[in-house]
Every structure is written in C-alpha cells, then in structure tokens.
Write a protein that binds this DNA or RNA. Structure first.
Length: 309
DNA sequence: AAATGTGGCAACCGCCTGCTA
DNA sequence: TTAGCAGGCGGTTGCCACATT
C-alpha cells in the first residue's frame, strides 16, 4: 500500500486552526472549488499587517483534508446544532431505504453534512433503535425476540406451562408479530420498487405513502390485537400499569425465557415507529409473567442471558 | 479532588469510481 | 485500452468535555 497523500512530510494533521480556516476560505473565494490537490501550495494568508515571510506561509494541509474541512465545516449554509424531530424521522426513514448511503441521505437534508448525519446516526439513533429492539441495519424488529409463536411451540421451553398460563393465551395471538413484520417488509419492497422505477426525486413522496400504508396496516393489527386481548383474563390493555415509554427511558423489567432471565425492553421488538398498542400489550404480557415469577426478577444484562441453566 | 468512564464529534484512512492523457 | 490521479464515500479513530465513582 502506497503512502497516503496526507502522509507527505511537512503536511499537518489534526484539528484546524482559525488561521488555516481563513487561508482555505480566502483561496476558495478567489479560485472557486475543485483542484483540491493544488490548493495547499497556492493558499496563503492575506491578512493585513502580516510580514512577507508570514504571507509566504503555505497551508500545510493535503488537498483531501482541505476538501473535508470545507464540505463538513466551512461551506456556507451548513446547519449546526441539534437535529429537529422532523430531521430525525427523515434520517430514519431514508436510512431504512438507502442504508448507510450518508451522502444520499445528506442530499435530502439541506444544511446537514454526510459526516454529521453519520455521527448522529452512530451516536444517537442507532442506540435508540437498539434499545427499542429494532435492528438498526434492517429496521425490522430483532428476529431473535420477534417470533413469539415459535417460542410458544418450543419443546425446550414452555414458560407458559411453567407459569400455568397456557390456557389463558390464544396461540393465534402470537402470530401477530410476524404478520406485522411481514406487512412492513412488503411495504418496504413496494417502496423500493417504486423508487427504482420512478427515480429518487419521488423518494420522500413514496416514503409518505409508505407511512400511510404502514399506519393503516398497524391500525388493522391493533384492532385484531384488542379483540384478542379482550379474551385473555387479567390481561387487557386497559389494565396495563407498565408503560412502554418507561422502558424506553431505561426503566426496564425482566422476564424468564427458557429458564434464563432477559431484559424486558428487548421484548418490545414490535415497537417500531408507531406500534403503541403492541408496546403496551407486550409489556402487559411481560408484566404478567414477571409478576408470577418474582423470584426470577433480579439483576440482568442483555444480549447474553444472565444465568445459564 | 482525582480517577475513570462515556458520549459526541471532527478528522483521518483506505477503498472505490470516474476522468483523462 | 489502460495506468495514474483526483475526488468522493463510508468506516474508524482519537480527542475533548462532561458525568460518575
């Protein structure tokens, strides 16, 4: 592997000084953008009162570093500060379609740079989605905790039998998560198809349409959910004392699965962007389970079971 | 008050692509 | 046709500020 352009002897690395910023801005004002590799040897300070020797001082940065500094920090129109809720939602939606195409996402957010969006994603959104049990790569509920019907049918585990609750639950009930996931995936595929056939300029409109379809789908599922829940004694949505939003804020509970203790908020895989009914239902189930198994409600960590059996 | 941990962010690295001679 | 180069991009690093112990 050859030497990187920024490894050349004499070129500076690290944080930019105001003086360097000024040299870069002045150069671009005079010469315009482009020709980044020529920039360092041509960019000099023109501040009043400087000595000739000082003016001869070159911008000791490689062109690549100059381009990055300009596009990410000095370029006019850059919006700094906190991301708005609208921007936040747009990033999530665009990411669900485009993936880690930060420059493409940035093109849809005026004033935001790809680097800024990438940082925001990695430090904030990604963690938030993980906390909600959503895979930040696929934007789907984490499958390892989604397939409740397989849990229900599992020969290894039957937590409901353990708790004596099997008679309380309609097996169909556990199929809802997967059907919901399926509808979401179908909508996403439809969106991708439309995007490919119509071009990126329709992306946002498609996203809005997709959201509408998605909301309708969720509404249908929620209605089914309410009907099914109403058949379960002591497990109505109205009786939920545990708030899903509390889980989002870190007030997590725990539940027993296959003889192992898991953190509760990972049992909210269906919480996507508007699945409030599922949040509450799943939390209510967890509440029910943990209430019946207080002896297991101890400290826990997640991703790896707490206590092997 | 000092040590340690954590989060946020600017900047760098290395790979890829497209242009041009 | 192809090799070299510049620019673009996503992933990663390292520094700094703040929080916690």
């Amino acid at each position: 592997m050859g030497r990187s352009p920024c490894d050349q002897i004499g070129l500076k690395k690290g944080p930019w000084t105001p003086e360097e910023d000024q040299k870069l801005i002045q150069y671009i004002q005079v010469h315009g953008l482009g020709k980044w590799s020529n920039l360092p040897k041509n960019a000099v300070s023109k501040k009043e009162g400087e000595t000739y020797q000082k003016r001869r001082e070159r911008l000791q940065r490689c062109g690549k570093s100059c381009r990055l500094r300009w596009t990410n920090y000095l370029r006019p129109g850059i919006k700094r500060g906190r991301f708005s809720i609208e921007e936040d939602e747009t990033i999530i939606q665009l990411h669900s379609v485009l993936g880690n195409k930060w420059s493409a996402i940035a093109a849809r957010l005026p004033g935001r740079t790809d680097n800024e969006i990438k940082n925001y994603w990695n430090t904030r959104i990604r963690k938030r989605l993980l906390r909600r049990g959503i895979d930040p790569v696929t934007h789907n509920p984490r499958l390892d905790f989604c397939d409740l019907s397989s849990i229900f049918n599992s020969a290894q585990l039957n937590v409901l039998i353990l708790l004596g609750l099997q008679a309380l639950v309609n097996p169909e009930f556990f199929k809802l998560p997967n059907s919901l996931l399926l509808s979401q995936t179908e909508n996403q595929e439809l969106l991708l198809h439309n995007q490919n056939s119509q071009g990126p300029e329709n992306l946002l409109r498609n996203l809005q349409q997709n959201q509408l379809l998605h909301d309708q789908s969720i509404s249908q599922h929620n209605n089914q959910l309410h009907n099914q829940v109403s058949e379960i004694p002591n497990c109505t949505l109205q009786n939920v004392s545990y708030s899903a939003s509390q889980a989002m804020q870190g007030n997590v509970g725990s539940y027993l699965m296959n003889g192992q203790m898991f953190q509760e908020n990972m049992m909210l895989p269906l919480q996507n962007y508007s699945y409030s009914a599922f949040d509450e239902f799943e939390s209510s189930m967890i509440q029910l389970l943990t209430n019946n198994n207080n002896q297991y409600s101890q400290n826990f960590s997640f991703d790896t079971p707490l206590s092997g059996t």
